[in-house]
Amino acid sequence: MDSLPIISLEKLKDLSSPSGNAEHKQLYETCLEHGFFYLKDHGIPSELVQKTIEASRHFFQLPKEIKQAYSQDKQTVYPQTSRGYSPLYGETLNGQTGADPKELFDLGLERPPSDKPFTGSTLIPDNKVAPGFASYHYQLQEEIINKVVPPLLQGLAVALNKEPHWFDPYFDDPILIHRVIHYPPHLGSAGKHTDTGIFTILIQEYFSDPSLRIYAQTGWIYADCLENTFVINLGDMLQYWTNGLLVSTAHEVIHTLPHSRISIPIFVFPNHNTLIQPMGTDKTINSTDVMLDNFQSIWVDKSGSGRAQELKQ
């Protein structure tokens, strides 16, 4: 395989047949073989995506002291590393390669203050400080959570020979890690890792030369930027849920172009303290414990994200 398969979200919405259609079968084969694919026909306005990317670039161009006013240590959500601004070399996605040369800002679903991990409100710059940054991101987030996440979950359920709404009870109040990343010119990177959630929705800024590399069956390949598509990759929680049938796919970013790159991954997790029962077993895995362990691994132990320690390729 030298390019990723393309799946139509619109076709996945067709649930007229209990066993699904050809698109559901392609989704199953794609998830089984690759764990990464392009999603087209997602219904998210390209103008909104572009405005969000532009507002994000303007935020990262702000002086360091302004960005640091919204840093992780100023946040009130637990863990603090799940929200706010992190500077270059703040995050370690792979302990073997060390801290990543990238800036990022994390937000989530806006909720009242809570003792629940990953739940609450984000300290984020307003329009006076960073015009459009918060408003466009929250608008994009609402579109994603309403138009993309539910039909994609239903499509996965059908592909796994479950009834379409099988996942719904676990995602009626999901946790999102909504991230925007700024890769600087020439040296931006994110170490080899896997994501922890059920899946990740990645919005790539369009460039003719790609920076995202994924580990396919035949080795590492670059994921070209295709206009009006998102990149979807499976995470560790779906691997746990399917008892290893569908495997989270390793990936990394190597950005060497002479201009910066904006990337917007949205990591989708089930409801707080969801008990995942690997299919065909009586075991249970607490989803929030998995998230907390992963944040410990990334930000405290600095050994990496997901299955990073397994990745020797």
Rank of each mutant, 00 (worst) to 15 (best):
M237K: 01
T284H: 12
D172F: 11
L176S: 05
L32W: 05
E23P: 05
I203C: 03
Q204V: 15
N161P: 00
K162A: 07
T242E: 02
P278M: 10
G244T: 13
D289V: 07
Q61G: 07
L12W: 07
P164Q: 02
P265T: 10
S114D: 10
I7M: 09
T200F: 02
H58I: 08
T284Y: 14
L88R: 03
A250D: 14
A190F: 07
I44Q: 03
Q61I: 01
T229M: 11
L176I: 15
N286T: 01
G280A: 06
P265R: 05
K67I: 11
K162T: 02
V129S: 00
H193P: 06
R213H: 14
F60G: 02
S56P: 01
F295Q: 07
E310W: 09
Y206M: 11
E103L: 00
I6Y: 09
A159S: 15
R57N: 06
Q154N: 11
G306C: 01
T97Y: 02
P151C: 08
F230S: 04
H42K: 11
T284F: 12
K283Q: 15
F295T: 03
F60M: 06
Y70E: 07
Y222A: 11
K283C: 11
F230L: 12
T122E: 02
D172T: 09
L153S: 05
L226D: 08
C225F: 09
D195Q: 08
P113L: 14
N286G: 01
L88C: 08
P150V: 03
G95V: 06
N161E: 15
H58P: 00
H24A: 02
K13V: 00
G90H: 12
G306L: 00
E23D: 10
L234W: 03
F37E: 08
D2E: 15
S114G: 09
W166N: 01
T92R: 01
T200V: 14
D236Q: 08
A22E: 15
I276V: 13
E29F: 06
K25Y: 05
